[in-house]
Nucleic acid binder design. Structure first.
Lengths: 201, 201
DNA sequence: CGTCTATTTGAATGTACTCAAAAGCGGTGG
DNA sequence: CCACCGCTTTTGAGTACATTCAAATAGACG
């Protein structure tokens, strides 16, 4: 018997899944039986670089982010995962090698957890999920491709504007240094750039 | 009845497909019946930005690349597709909106063409291809994610070294300005950087 | 061989970084 | 409730990496 929170989370992810595939009652139950649930505190770590990635996370509330830390201690944000987004270290998940990114909450959050093994089983038991994740991956790929082109074409101000368009709900909640690290500038430069932009408008 | 070239191309793509899924004779025939073939001259255009993307291309020989052109006429290379790679404007393909990238041959090449419609039919007729493209997309996503992190972490020299590791077979055949545009620097700076690196070694 | 484009080289410039220090802000414990 | 601590943000000066513009040279292709 599941708690109300779990029921709600299941409803939420099923609603998301149904945007791309249609499941019957049995398939829904198979899927939900593989999910677990967790509250995550602000700054809590779900995945450490160097350790094998064994889970995919679906955010039902709050926001996580994936990042790398370089030899100088600088963080580089690969992605933010607000509500209804999936996040994992895909490299580690599909290769079985140690993770290259860290996953951490940017605010107190709630996530659904799908283990690597359960995900593989799911593909076999309910092949529709091959399609589901194919579609998710396509969208994700388009997003990352656009980001690469933005990084090639745009200067820091323009990249920040893009970020604001893409994640309007995050602009107010994230630390500036996290946004700076996503668009690829230092916190100092980001701060100066922001005052410059505000002065103009 | 197909030409020998077509037979060879079919064998090549089937061999590639079999790295991820196993097809029986009937499934192979369904798949191959949807493919067409084409030789592409150096610099020939397969996809123009602004026009709807109706095809995915699989390179059997040579190399294509996808790029955007900005308002100053500068090209920004999203990806190279050497032998055994797929390339398309995924954004346009899945959204039905006008393409945002151009696809062109970097050298005389040969490609297999799969239309958007045939690809969709293929998913329904041979659902194993959902898995195939899911796996392809996963690998592609990991590659683009790594590139984003490289662009955040590394300076131009290091990005060039990465490029050389990733595409050793292309380093000799591409124009310098194409490599420059992939790693995100001007051709002039790339030229200076290269002499600097050669002087050192 | 001639034309067109790519590459090289140099000087001046600009965008973003580094280092250092001060100010702001949030959480925690007395 | 306030004071303190640690972390984030701001500000400034000096620097570095990469761009721009211009001109010369080299290469590719018909």
């Amino acid at each position: 018997m599941k708690s109300l929170t779990h029921e709600n989370a299941c409803q939420q992810i099923l609603q998301n899944v149904h945007r791309h595939i249609t499941l019957d009652q049995n398939e829904k139950e198979i899927f939900c039986s593989k999910l677990s649930f967790r509250k995550v505190k602000n700054r809590e770590v779900l995945q450490k670089a160097g350790e094998n990635c064994m889970f995919s996370y679906f955010v039902t509330k709050g926001c996580l982010h994936g990042f790398q830390t370089d030899q100088n201690g600088f963080e580089h944000v690969l992605n933010f995962a607000p509500t209804d987004y999936w996040i994992s270290d895909l490299y580690s998940l599909i290769s079985g090698k140690p993770a290259v990114i860290n996953i951490e909450a940017t605010t107190s959050s709630e996530v659904i957890i799908l283990s690597r093994k359960d995900q593989e089983d799911l593909y076999l038991e309910v092949p529709k999920f091959e399609r589901f994740f194919r579609v998710i991956l396509e969208k994700s790929l388009v997003h990352f491709q656009q980001r690469i082109l933005d990084n090639l074409r745009l200067n820091a101000e323009e990249r920040y504007e893009r970020f604001c368009e893409k994640y309007p709900q995050l602009v107010g909640t994230l630390a500036q240094k996290q946004i700076a690290s996503y668009i690829g500038v230092t916190p100092e430069f980001f701060s100066k750039m922001r005052t410059r932009m505000l002065r103009r408008s």
